[in-house]
Design a protein around this nucleic acid. Structure first.
Lengths: 175, 175
DNA sequence: CCAGGTTGGTTGTATACGCAACAACAACAG
DNA sequence: CTGTTGTTGTTGCGTATACAACCAACCTGG
């Protein structure tokens, strides 16, 4: 029998590969933490809550189906149920029944939620620019966007999800 | 008094900015999930566990201080304590007392852990290449690495952490 | 109409994580 | 040596999340 210990070559990552890959992991972690802390400190809002408000604010009638909201912010349905619970308790949004589908529920922004987002959005956008976007030249930004699309296409997250959220023909969601 | 409702311009993100920013968020989420699932399926190993084994394998004597390990894999000290507990229960590593510092503890790879990693590493590396690295040209890869460094420098995660992990002059940690 | 399969939202349960508190030890000033 | 301050690893606790099970409502073919 062949020994299991004569290893296949196992080509490790080259330094540039390593920098590109681990760099993204570290950047994502650092930015998520920093932006969350910033938002928490200035507006008492977690990043996940912010994302909910943001998507709602940009949606028609400031409301979205739970299901769509969950996939937009990359959360499980149960996760969203609880997140919406919290935000509802804070008065930032409310649940609204859906006429067409008795199973369905909308999460809908309240005036308080709209106002909260308006304040938080400036902070968050400034943070994203300062910590991330400003580092790239316009050309790099363009190239980066293209690269992400290619990655997502490969891993199968490309077409379906995008079609689902963009089919309404609304302006792109903001941050 | 000035009304709070005459909003400052609040310049939203341009489409390229949006693609570059949200793209990274989605890519990170998609890859983390896909790579974790892949590793779990083929070797019954979570990504966080893999990272621990990987750092240990590349360290001198296949051991690291808990503290250094925690910061390497971007986890809190308490988080690492529990993660190491689990891996120790699975026999993939062991705790070893530290001679120089009676407070300290090393996490040290066991032969089982080394073998586990050897198998998992091929899978993981292949996944990282297929889902991420292969999408970039060598020039893009180089540019990306540089950009990450600039981002990390800005947010203060650059110098200190890197100095801490690279001061030993060992080869760069692998993935 | 209705029977089977599907979807949308909620709930129970398990897990992983961070923070704060702690104890043991280290390091250092005096 | 001694008191003070910082560091290391662990633990208690709270929380956020995912998965699976569930129910109600939808839909579709007959």
């Amino acid at each position: 029998m062949a020994t299991t210990s004569d290893s296949p070559p196992l080509r490790l990552l080259t330094p540039p590969e390593l920098r590109a890959w681990r760099g993204m992991l570290r950047v994502h972690a650092a930015l998520a933490k920093a932006l969350d802390a910033q938002l928490e400190a200035t507006h008492g809002l977690q990043l996940s809550s912010y994302e909910v408000l943001m998507y709602l604010a940009d949606a028609e009638y400031e409301r979205m189906r739970m299901c769509d909201l969950a996939s937009s912010i990359l959360l499980s349905r149960s996760g969203l149920t609880r997140l919406v619970d919290r935000l509802q308790r804070e008065g930032l949004l409310e649940r609204v029944a859906c006429d067409d589908d008795a199973r369905g529920a909308f999460a809908k922004l309240t005036p308080a939620g709209r106002e909260k987002l308006r304040a938080a959005r400036a902070t968050h956008l400034a943070g994203v620019r300062a910590m991330f976007l400003d580092v790239f030249s316009p050309e790099e930004l363009e190239a980066l966007g293209g690269a992400w699309d290619r990655v997502l296409e490969r891993s199968g997250f490309g077409c379906c999800k995008i079609a689902r959220t963009q089919v309404a023909g609304e302006p792109d969601h903001q941050t």
